[in-house]
Simulated assay, not measured.
Amino acid sequence: MMAISKTEINLRRLLSAAPNQQNQSKLMHYVATLREQLEQLSEEKTHEGLPRVTKTKVNEYYEKIEAVASKIAAQVMAWFVVALSLIVIWVASLCKIFFGATFSFKAAILDDGITPHKKNVLFVIAHPDDESMFFSPTINYLTTNAYNLHILCFSTGNDDGMGSIRKDELHQACAVLRVPLQQLKILDHPNLQDGFGQVWSHDLLTEIIDEAVTNHDIHTIITFDNYGVSGHSNHRDVHHGVLKFLKIRTERNIKAWEKLVSLKIFRKYCGPVDWLSILSAKRHPSKLIIINEQPWKSFEAMAQHLSQWVWFRKLFVIFSSYTYTNILCRINP
């Protein structure tokens, strides 16, 4: 009986291991190696000059190798179809936004009998760039419809020692978003400094919010939800400050809306196609949907924050659903 060559032994071992290999790149390498080994095996000769393996055996190995290769092809095709489908939906959604086919249910967010140009809306945020990263669809909608916008920013974002730079960047972003600079207030309070480890006093926040509401005759407040969109502790403290203000100042009859968070990371970074949130909001009258008809303005506004305009934030602005859609929920203290 003819001894099995080293090449055939290695080929059999690799064929045996291939079905258990889950890493697709390694599996592709297996197939390439198996094909090379089969070609080498088919050319091997005995001392008498005869083929070491029969043509039937070569064909048998070939069929087994191609079966492994077809498994890879099927997986690649499945991923390709999924990716292509997502791209088509994504592009179609962008076209819907860019070419004005807006949603009729995006809502008269502040419809309570007061004309828009007399309606004073206060955005309460924690850091420069929050307005562009998270709230730009709502800001664009309100400025387009002649609402009178104010922004209260509780810090200069000085965690990295660039507070003065970030303050100037917020001024430039507000110019892009058409928020009057005299209606922007940026605080640099010693007890309200930027940072994950910084705990902001809810009493202090409430006091400052109360002052802003009184000075500017604010009718509506828009801010973060309980999670703070990104989970940042400063964002969450701002929410609790607004909530406490609403509980204490019930006689003012101030409306307040919080920005909802997509709980699943896919929905958070699916760009303009967060249809699950949109369909969910349609079934709940306490939720409002704001579609950004000018997403390019959101890009331009965020680009003003040059100190923060690094590659991963560029990707965030492109793929984040917050660039294209805001789902707001009424705060009931």
Rank of each mutant, 00 (worst) to 15 (best):
F99W: 10
V238E: 00
P128W: 08
L184A: 01
N120Q: 15
K118S: 11
D225S: 14
V31Y: 00
L170H: 05
A32Q: 05
P128D: 11
W90I: 00
H239K: 02
I222M: 07
L306Q: 15
I125H: 13
M302I: 03
K259R: 12
E66I: 11
E36H: 08
S262Q: 10
W79L: 13
I318N: 03
F134P: 03
N10F: 10
L149E: 00
Q294C: 09
Q75K: 10
R12W: 05
A78Y: 09
A74R: 13
K57S: 10
S233W: 02
K247E: 11
A173D: 02
E8D: 09
P51T: 08
Y61D: 08
I290F: 02
V229F: 02
S298E: 04
H171Y: 12
V242A: 04
E300K: 15
C95T: 06
R52F: 06
T206V: 00
E258K: 15
I87M: 10
S277N: 09
I97S: 08
A78D: 12
V81K: 14
Q193D: 04
K119N: 13
A212H: 09
V179Q: 01
L94G: 11
Y62F: 13
H117G: 01
W311H: 13
K259T: 12
N59D: 14
F98A: 05
H305F: 06
S298F: 03
C174Y: 00
I72T: 01
D112P: 01
T223I: 05
D159G: 11
V81N: 11
K247Q: 12
R52V: 13
I248V: 13
T115S: 14
M1H: 10
K287V: 00
A18T: 14
S25E: 11
N10D: 10
L15F: 07
K96E: 03
G195P: 05
F154A: 08
N120T: 11
I291D: 05
T323V: 07
G197I: 00
L110C: 14
K106V: 05
S320K: 03
H240C: 07
T7G: 09
W90M: 06
L27S: 00
V53S: 04
Q21G: 06
Q183I: 02
H216M: 06
K26M: 08
L14G: 09
Q182N: 14
K167H: 12
L260Q: 14
A107N: 08
Y324A: 05
F103K: 03
S155Q: 08
T143M: 03
F245A: 08
I291N: 05
I186Q: 01
S230E: 02
F103Q: 02
